[in-house]
């Protein structure tokens, strides 16, 4: 019957060919980025994990693929196991982890305190001002991160701009040692990540219905109270998104503590770097990376949840 004639989707040409081998255009679109991310994002983690978690693989030769290490295979595995143990027992790593979390946390709070008024002010500004103001916030982000961190060396150093100004004003008579201290790291992280806090905050605050505040005012609520009871709670999603965008990468930050923090600012990113580049101890570096990742799994999952919600899908 005519009814069955068209029961197959008819494709001609290349697509038809693909379809006959069981591939639709859609599957093709899906497979390319999927395969890319699997190979270059997921598999690398598994390799790191493999090199970091040695115990279960002591007996069998699991690293045959890593021929480079074949002659010291035994050595490498033992060391990895040893290093995991080492990481737990040696204060250095524990301190570095805790310090990273502390520095990231404090910097996130600083970003929030500094970024909220900016985001709120832009959201409240006259619509014709919003785009240029937002552009001003984003512009530094487009210039080099490294250079922006570097700029603070000139400001914070002992004979830097800040000390010179303070001394000229007579506030201090001895230069303050700020550069190469944790304070400089806080400043550097806050400065570098501030736009990441402002943008999600702005987009939540901008969506906030102004009539809510008008209704509150109408009901006799003074502006500051309306802010506390309406604006602030409703902007929590933006705060969370912004905080995660700052906190997670800041925890693993390397460049900022390296350039501004001085030798005493221990952060885990630096430790990993040192193990890898200076001590050439790849398995230990992997173990450090795995441990760092474990710290960040929960925040990253929360971030993905937030991201998924705002990204939205049909």
């Amino acid at each position: 019957m005519a009814e069955t004639v068209q029961s197959e989707m008819r494709h001609t040409g290349f697509l038809g060919l693909l379809q006959r081998v069981g591939l639709s255009g859609r599957a093709l679109v899906v497979s390319v980025p999927y395969a890319w991310l699997l190979l270059f994002f997921l598999v690398p983690f598994l390799i790191v994990l493999k090199i970091a978690l040695a115990e279960s693989q002591m007996a069998i030769p699991p690293f045959t693929s890593l021929i480079e290490n074949v002659e010291d295979l035994k050595y490498q595995i033992t060391v990895t196991f040893y290093n995991f143990h080492y990481m737990v027992t040696d204060d250095l790593y524990i301190v570095a982890y805790l310090n990273s979390l502390k520095i990231a946390f404090i910097s996130t709070i600083c970003c929030l305190l500094l970024g909220y008024p900016v985001a709120y002010a832009i959201a409240k500004a006259d619509p014709k001002w919003r785009a240029p103001l937002l552009m001003l916030v984003i512009l530094p982000f487009w210039t080099s991160f490294l250079i922006r961190v570097y700029a603070w060396i000139g400001i914070l150093s002992n004979n830097g701009v800040l000390n010179n100004v303070l001394m000229w004003l007579g506030i201090i008579d001895q230069p303050l040692q700020i550069l190469y201290t944790p304070v400089a790291t806080y400043i550097g992280i806050t400065y570098s990540y501030l736009p990441f806090m402002i943008l999600p905050l702005y987009s939540t605050l901008e969506k906030l219905d102004n009539t809510l505040l008008e209704a509150a005012a109408d009901l006799g609520c003074p502006p500051w109270k309306a802010f506390l009871t309406i604006t602030l709670p409703l902007s929590i999603p933006g705060m969370i998104a912004g905080a995660l965008l700052v906190f997670i990468p800041a925890t693993g930050e390397f460049v900022i503590p390296e350039l501004l923090g001085g030798p005493d600012t221990l952060m885990i990113g630096r430790t990993l770097w040192t193990e890898f580049f200076n001590n050439r101890d790849w398995p230990l570096a992997s173990a450090v990376a795995v441990a760092l990742l474990l710290f960040l799994v929960v925040p990253i999952m929360i971030f993905q949840n937030v991201q998924g919600k705002q990204g939205g899908h049909p």
């Binding site: 980025p33 999927y34 991310l37 699997l38 190979l39 270059f40 994002f41 997921l42 598999v43 690398p44 983690f45 390799i47 790191v48 090199i51 693929s65 890593l66 480079e68 995660l244 965008l245 997670i248 990468p249 925890t251 693993g252 930050e253 390397f254 990113g269 990993l272 770097w273 890898f276 790849w282 570096a285 992997s286 990376a289 760092l292 990742l293 960040l296 925040p299 990253i300 971030f303 993905q304 991201q307 998924g308 990204g311």
Partner: peptide, 26 residues
């Protein structure tokens, strides 16, 4: 997939760098 897409947005660079290097070596 959506996890793999959004994780690099926040993933500390030292981890990405190390893992990619180990991949290339392998």
């Amino acid at each position: 997939f959506s996890g793999m897409v959004s994780a690099p947005l926040v993933m500390p660079e030292v981890i990405m760098g190390l893992s990619l290097l180990l991949l290339f070596v392998s």
